[in-house]
Nucleic acid binder design. Structure first.
Length: 429
DNA sequence: TCTGGGGTCCTAGGACCC
DNA sequence: TCTGGGGTCCTAGGACCC
């Protein structure tokens, strides 16, 4: 049966999550910051109206924030991740084919029925999520994913559609495309927009009608695919099977610049531990570790960035194995006198542990120490009591200079018993 | 003073093979 | 002057996404 795509997108997701447990903030401007409280990564509609741009460093909009009494939150990924799962669970209850595209978006496929049927269905879905999770969503429907993205923008922006807009079989489709800037099309970023504008392609409709060979040459097959999707030819299918990640990265900017090796070691160990945990959670192993370091990125004079890769003897998800490799990298990368701002570990060559390629020369003896039971125990304890309950070789000093600055973080309302929200009842007396 | 973190895919160019 | 033809694999860098 022929199907159409629906894109479910949570409105101002992080801001909505914060408001969920602070209902007094409804109707008030709210923003959420990136880690280290660096830039704005989410804004409520009220904050958007104030002209606070997405991605803007906090210090540049301080005046707007203070003057308008904007509520500012550090990012709280435990909370957002948990609420995201809840939204996706509601979708899975209703639909078999769900592609979780990001923390706040999912594609589903819907049967081709009468338009009003689809709209009614989507409206019910929307209401269900609002009721069961409390997060507002918008739903865009179309014959391709790229068009569904555009439909979703309309659903979000134009209040008269009540959060649902259907472009499939819509005779007004070209009018909608004409009103859509080409750089608002999914897959068309800053660089491509420049190229397109130079050829007087300004809207999604212009791109739909652009010369195919030219688009293919200038924007590669990726751009050509986008143009075809605008023409209603579906090129990007629904990916509903969970797949093995290609790489896993854990990196952080430091709260303060670091110069000494001891602190760098601690930071590396901490990030490698997180990366190892991510591997094990997904049941995969990595055979390549890359460590990268950067000094002040906006200070040309003292800037230095470098990376080092190690190929492991065999794929592993064991934290101590990974730490050993990372320490080797750090040793060769470290330069005394540099003010390090950020460090990260990237794991690649990822495979499912069930299909591990054995070492030809190890015969029955594994070359790498197997510490699965230890890792399992570690993960269980940290799962139950919090990520940092048991760690490798890290001091317990409270104020690590490398740890993130997060001064306005909300409680872990839904993932920690000790931080559950408290409902106050009026006294009966 | 202050600028996130985590991913994917594509291409060009180099090294290498027969 | 002129230097084959056809291929694979790997890596770095670019572009994009949320």
């Amino acid at each position: 049966m022929k199907k159409v795509f629906a894109l479910i997108d949570c409105n101002n997701f992080y801001a909505s999550c914060e408001r969920l447990f602070r209902p007094e903030l409804n109707g008030q401007p709210v923003v959420v910051l990136s880690s280290n409280d660096g830039c704005i990564v989410a804004r409520s509609n009220e904050a958007k109206v104030l002209g606070i741009p997405m991605g803007e460093p906090l210090f540049k909009v301080k005046h707007l924030i203070t003057r308008n009494n904007v509520h500012v939150f550090s990012s709280n990924y435990a909370l957002y991740g948990d609420l995201s799962h809840r939204v996706m669970d509601v979708l899975r209850q209703m639909e078999a084919d769900v592609e979780v595209y990001s923390i706040d978006e999912a594609f589903i496929s819907l049967p081709v029925t009468k338009v009003w049927n689809r709209i009614k269905y989507a409206a019910e879905l929307r209401e269900k999520i609002r009721k069961q999770v409390g997060i507002p969503v918008s739903i865009g429907i179309a014959t391709t994913k790229t068009l569904a993205k555009i439909a979703n923008r309309v659903a979000k922006k134009e209040a008269q559609f009540n959060g649902v807009f259907d472009l499939a079989g819509n005779s007004q489709i070209d009018q909608v495309l004409e009103k859509t800037d080409v750089n608002d099309v999914w897959g068309i970023g800053r660089r491509s927009t420049e190229k397109l504008n130079n050829r007087r392609i300004y809207t999604a409709l212009d791109l739909k009608r652009a010369d195919e060979a030219w688009v293919r040459k200038q924007l590669t097959v990726v751009g050509a695919r986008t143009a075809m999707e605008l023409n209603g030819i579906s090129c990007i299918s629904l990916e509903n099977a969970p797949s093995c990640p290609k790489s896993i990265i854990t990196s952080r900017s430091f709260g303060h610049p670091i110069t000494d090796l001891d602190n760098l070691r601690e930071a590396v160990i901490s990030y490698v531990s997180i990366a190892g945990e991510k591997l094990r959670k997904q049941g995969v192993e990595a055979d390549t570790l890359n460590l990268f370091v950067t000094t002040r990125p906006f200070d040309e004079q003292a800037s230095y960035s470098n990376n080092q890769t190690i190929t492991l003897r065999q794929p592993t998800s064991s934290t101590p194995e990974l730490i050993t490799a990372a320490m080797q990298c750090l040793k060769s990368l470290y330069r005394p006198g540099c003010r390090y701002r950020k460090i990260g570990v990237m794991l690649a060559g990822i495979t499912n542990h069930r299909y591990r390629q054995q070492d030809l020369f190890s015969f029955s003896q594994p070359t790498v120490k197997e510490d699965k039971p230890l890792m399992t125990a570690l993960d269980k304890i940290n799962d139950k009591w919090g990520r940092c309950t048991i760690q490798y070789g890290i001091t317990t000093a409270e104020d690590k200079p490398w740890s993130m600055q997060q001064t306005r973080k909300s409680p872990a309302y839904t993932t920690n018993w000790l931080e559950l929200p408290v409902v106050k009842t009026a006294s009966l007396s």
